[in-house]
Nucleic acid binder design. Structure first.
Lengths: 119, 119
DNA sequence: CTACGTGCAAATACTTTGCTGGATT
DNA sequence: AATCCAGCAAAGTATTTGCACGTAG
């Protein structure tokens, strides 16, 4: 585990706002003026592959990164804001359909956030 | 509803392989030699906005499009293959947490498909 | 005759890759 | 000395946008 890799893992784990690669890059530069965006991408890819962080795909936005604590996400259909939500774990139900080949699941809920709803 | 828009909707609804914009473009050209990729993208965006089709975001792959029949998806973590799966509808549970602002949800299950598992 | 969809080309956004040099073991 | 990571620049892929024209209401 290299210095950059550890730094990026820490940034993801200590950020609660689902940062994109670019935002992680900016935060990394505050700590290490030399890191470059490609390195951030490379490390994020490794960390995802190792299962140390989670990648969230939202169409129309760059990928976001998150810790691996079990939880789900909401996406506002108007402004794209991403938040956490906790829905009961459905791993067992999925496993009963898929068997051992199951790896994980992602649940993204579309909704209209409070700010957008006011309008 | 224009001719292109109708054609693209038909392609999505009659395809059961979750085509990307590019694949839809190729199929569209088989029917209408003049359509252009940007028009396909524009129409897909409109159709998604109108709720007539569904967009599936999978990180590392281009967005895929699907009909709006309620079902969920599996993604092979090795080869990226996308398939359908039917998990019990959890709309009610989500609504009980989110209330009326709920719009829809997407459930993507990561697993290892049979072909990749052999290796 | 007005509005809107389309073709086209170019621009933008996001992400990956190849190469080289340096750090770490 | 060998390996692997990082910096850098460039390429690659996906998607959007601006403009001008044509068609349909």
């Amino acid at each position: 585990m290299t210095k950059n890799s550890k730094m990026i893992l820490d940034i993801v784990n200590s950020s609660h706002d689902h940062p994109t690669a670019d935002q992680i890059f900016i935060r990394a530069k505050e700590q290490n003026s030399k890191v470059v965006l490609a390195t951030v991408y490379n490390n994020l890819n490794s960390l995802v592959k190792e299962g140390k962080i989670r990648r969230i795909a939202v169409s129309g936005k760059p990928d976001c990164y998150d810790n691996t604590f079990r939880h789900d996400h909401t996406v506002c259909v108007k402004c794209g804001a991403l938040s956490d939500i906790m829905i009961d774990d459905i791993t067992e139900e999925i496993k009963s359909k898929l068997g051992d080949s199951f790896v994980s699941y992602d649940l993204n809920v579309s909704y209209i956030c409070d700010e957008c709803r006011e309008k």
